[in-house]
């Protein structure tokens, strides 16, 4: 399973997104606001999720802001730092 697919499954399960399936999440759609509709508390959960499931630490808000644009950007961020 590639990182994007795993990420989508984790988002749906850990953020309890009952109205959407992993297959329905677009790679490029915004995670926050329009798109998936996540909010600021989800951002904090996302930091925990990324560290817990991928072992990647998001150290500051600026890094997080860029990574949390979409599934594409978050998967790229994880791939870049995984095992680093």
């Amino acid at each position: 399973m590639d990182t994007k697919e795993k990420l989508k499954q984790i988002l749906v399960k850990d953020l309890n997104l009952e109205e959407v399936t992993p297959e329905e999440i677009s790679d490029s759609a915004p995670l926050f606001g329009e798109g998936l509709g996540l909010d600021s508390l989800d951002a904090v959960e996302l930091v925990v999720i990324v560290q817990k499931h991928f072992g990647v630490e998001i150290k500051d808000m600026e890094e997080g802001r860029k990574a949390f644009q979409s599934v594409d950007s978050l998967a790229a961020y994880i791939e870049e730092r995984k095992g680093a």
Binding site: D14, L41, V44, E45, V48, Q51, K52, E57
Partner: peptide, 13 residues
């Protein structure tokens, strides 16, 4: 989650 992953992996929710 606190025990297995430490405080950085504890869910705020």
């Amino acid at each position: 989650s606190l025990i297995s992953g430490g405080d950085t992996c504890a869910s705020p929710t």
